[in-house]
Design a protein around this nucleic acid. Structure first.
Length: 196
DNA sequence: AAACGGATGGGCT
DNA sequence: GCCCATCCGTTTG
C-alpha cells in the first residue's frame, strides 16, 4: 500500500528524511521496477536554487500544486530529474530523489540503462529516471493512485528488516546558490549514493 | 583518483 | 544568450 497524502503534508525537510529507506515503485507495460530511496535533497520556497523561488511558471507548475505528486523536469538537454511535491497548494517546494538502490526489476533497469553494474543503474538523479522508465508525461502524476508509487519502509521485510537507519545531513550537489545549506540527506554507509 | 569537456535543448533574464 | 538540481568517456597527475 502506498503512503497516503498525510505523509507528504509534513514539512519538506521532514519528508526528505522520511523518504529515506522507502521504495519507489513503477509498474509499466515493460514490467515492475522498484528502488529503495537512499539519497534526497530538499528544495524550499525561500531558497534561490529552488525552481519555485521566483514564483509559478509553466515548467514548475506541479511544485505549486497539492503534495504527493511528481515533478519531473528536463535538464542539460538530455536528462530528467524526479521530485516529490510537498508543502500546501501555492507553496512551491519539493524533494529531489537523487539515488536508488535497485530492488526489483533489475534486469529491466539494466536494459533501460544499457549498463550491467548494479551500482551504475540508479546512483544519480538522471540515472534513476532512466532506470525506472519515468517520462515527461508522468510530470504531475499522483503518487498515490498512478502506476508510480512510494511504498513504506516495511514493504520488503525479508530483504529490508525493520531497523534504525542512520541519516547523514550535508550540502546539496550541482547547484550554484544556496550551496551552504544542509539540505541533502542520505543513508549512512550506503554504497548506492551518487557521491560522497 | 581527480579533473575536464562534450553532448544537447528548454527556460527565462 | 546564458544558465542549468547530469552523465560519461577521456585525459592528466
Amino acid at each position: 500500500m502506498p503512503f497516503s497524502v498525510e505523509f507528504y503534508k509534513k514539512p519538506t525537510i521532514q519528508v526528505a528524511k522520511n523518504l529515506l529507506g522507502t521504495f519507489l515503485a513503477h509498474e509499466s507495460t515493460q514490467g515492475m521496477a522498484v528502488g529503495r530511496i537512499v539519497e534526497t535533497e530538499a528544495y524550499l520556497y525561500n531558497d534561490p536554487s529552488c525552481h519555485g523561488f521566483r514564483g509559478e511558471t509553466p515548467r514548475n507548475k506541479p511544485m505549486f500544486g497539492p503534495p504527493g505528486h511528481a515533478y519531473i523536469y528536463f535538464i542539460y538537454g538530455m536528462y530528467h530529474c524526479f521530485n516529490v511535491v510537498t508543502a500546501p497548494v501555492g507553496v512551491g517546494e519539493a524533494v529531489l530523489i537523487r539515488s536508488l538502490e535497485p530492488v526489483e526489476g533489475i534486469d529491466l533497469m539494466q536494459q533501460r540503462r544499457q549498463r550491467t553494474a548494479i551500482h551504475e543503474l540508479a546512483s544519480g538523479p538522471g540515472k534513476l529516471v532512466i532506470a525506472m522508465g519515468l517520462t515527461r508525461e508522468m510530470n504531475g502524476a499522483n503518487l498515490i493512485t498512478s502506476p508510480l508509487k512510494i511504498l513504506p519502509r516495511e514493504s520488503f521485510p525479508q530483504k529490508y528488516p525493520a531497523r534504525k537507519l542512520p541519516v547523514v545531513t550535508t550540502t546539496r550537489i550541482g547547484i550554484s546558490s544556496g550551496n551552504h545549506l544542509p539540505l541533502r540527506f542520505y543513508l549512512k554507509d550506503n554504497p548506492f549514493i551518487s557521491r560522497k
